[in-house]
Each structure stands twice: as C-alpha cells, then as structure tokens.
C-alpha cells in the first residue's frame, strides 16, 4: 500500500482524506506485504472456482484453459483459497527474502 502516489503533503492531501477516485484500490500493489503465496497444482485442479469465490481480494481470475490463476499484485497470502480448495490443489509457499 505504501505506493509513492499516496505520499502527499498536508497542502495536497484530499479534503477530509476522502478518496475522490472510485475504485482506486486497483492502483495500489496491496500484495506487497504477503509472506506466503498460493501455488496451484494443475494436476489436482478440477476448475471448480472455489478459490475464485472465496478470495476476499478478488485476486483470482480464470485463464483461457479454464484454470484459476492468482494475481500476485493483489494477493495478500491469506491462504483462504488453499483452505477452501476441495482437492487440496493449492499449497501456500513461503515468500523468499
């Protein structure tokens, strides 16, 4: 979230700290502080989309082959997808560094 766009002075901060641009959360890399990432095993995946349904950040989307892939710009690594996957196809792997 600590995107350089958010760094403003008291004279330039928006009135009342309002966000005047609707849906501007998309402009911020909210996945920056993730400590673990979901890795999908396509061998086990049945394309049911439970990860897509449960992801609180709507970070999953479907690719051309029908698999669900995560956008790591927004994935916070909460692990809900791995917990909900009925085929245990998702493993949470620690981020390095």
């Amino acid at each position: 979230m600590a995107n350089s766009d958010a760094i403003v002075g008291w004279k330039t901060i928006t009135f009342g700290c309002h966000i005047l641009e609707p849906g501007n959360a998309a402009n911020f890399r909210t996945g920056d502080w993730r400590s673990q990432r979901p890795v999908v095993d396509k061998e086990k995946c049945i394309k049911c989309g439970m990860c897509w349904v449960f992801c609180p950040d709507m970070a999953y989307s479907q690719d051309e082959d029908g698999y669900f892939v995560v956008d790591l710009e927004y994935c916070k690594g909460c692990g809900i997808c791995a917990h909900e996957c009925p085929k245990d196809a998702i493993t949470m792997v620690p981020e390095e560094g």
Binding site: M1, I7, G16, I19, P22
Partner: peptide, 10 residues
C-alpha cells in the same frame, strides 16, 4: 469514499 485508512506516511 470517506474514512479510508491513514497509513503512517499520511
């Protein structure tokens, strides 16, 4: 949006 988070930077 009104009332967002104010991170330490702002």
């Amino acid at each position: 949006s009104m009332g967002p988070v104010g991170i330490p930077e702002v």
